[in-house]
């Protein structure tokens, strides 16, 4: 009796320790950043308000986001940025490089930014976007499940979300982005 009891406690305790241990091992894995937890591709961006926003002064010709999406005729990339956002400047050279290699594929939305400030930023640092508007009222940001800037979304031709970068396209995120884009373009 006493042996059976002791055995039961040992077995139950071991199971509990293993269970909690594996949960912690999964949960505390430094590769699994809590910031990336909500930013999976399991969400469904809502395109109902896509294209609604304020044109940037001097970039009115490039304000038709929907036309740019149609013209892309294949996969396309949506990038949220802001002139006040420092990490955006880190990925900006790569965005210029990407749009030079894939003309027409990159659409820019300025998040919580003054249209004049956003336009100045693009004029000074270069404009990588085939179409760009200021996301007035953050309508598109919320429809896309945005968590912050910069954030980049890779969409297939039919508008399905293939990859989402919850930070600047540098380092590992850049590599993942390139892989996703190459897979989407094939």
């Amino acid at each position: 009796m006493r042996i059976a009891l002791r055995l039961a406690i040992i077995v139950l305790g071991t199971v509990l320790i293993l269970l909690i241990g594996s949960l912690l091992w999964f949960g505390l894995n430094p590769q699994r950043s809590p910031a990336s937890f909500p930013t999976s591709t399991a969400i469904a961006p809502d395109f109902s308000a896509f294209g609604q926003g304020t044109p940037l002064p001097g970039y009115e010709d490039a304000a038709d986001v929907l036309a740019a999406r149609r013209a892309a005729e294949g996969p396309f990339v949506v990038n949220f940025f802001a002139s006040w956002c420092q990490p955006c400047r880190l990925e900006h050279p790569y965005l210029l490089e990407f749009s030079a290699a894939n003309p027409g594929a990159l659409i820019g939305l300025a998040y919580r930014d003054d249209p004049i400030d956003a336009a100045t930023y693009l004029t000074n640092d270069g404009n990588p976007y085939a179409a760009v508007i200021a996301d007035t009222g953050s309508t598109n940001a919320l429809n896309f499940g945005l968590t912050g800037v910069p954030e980049t979304y890779v969409f297939g031709a039919d508008g399905t979300l293939l990859f989402r970068s919850p930070g600047p396209l540098i380092g590992a995120l850049k590599t993942q982005f390139i892989d996703a884009w190459e897979a989407a373009s094939q």
Binding site: L19, L23, P38, I43, A44
Partner: peptide, 20 residues
Amino acid sequence: VQRYGDAVLMNPPLKPLTFA
């Protein structure tokens, strides 16, 4: 939830993944 996933709710929904 459609745009941000279950993580947007302060009370996680009851489903097999959240039983633990």
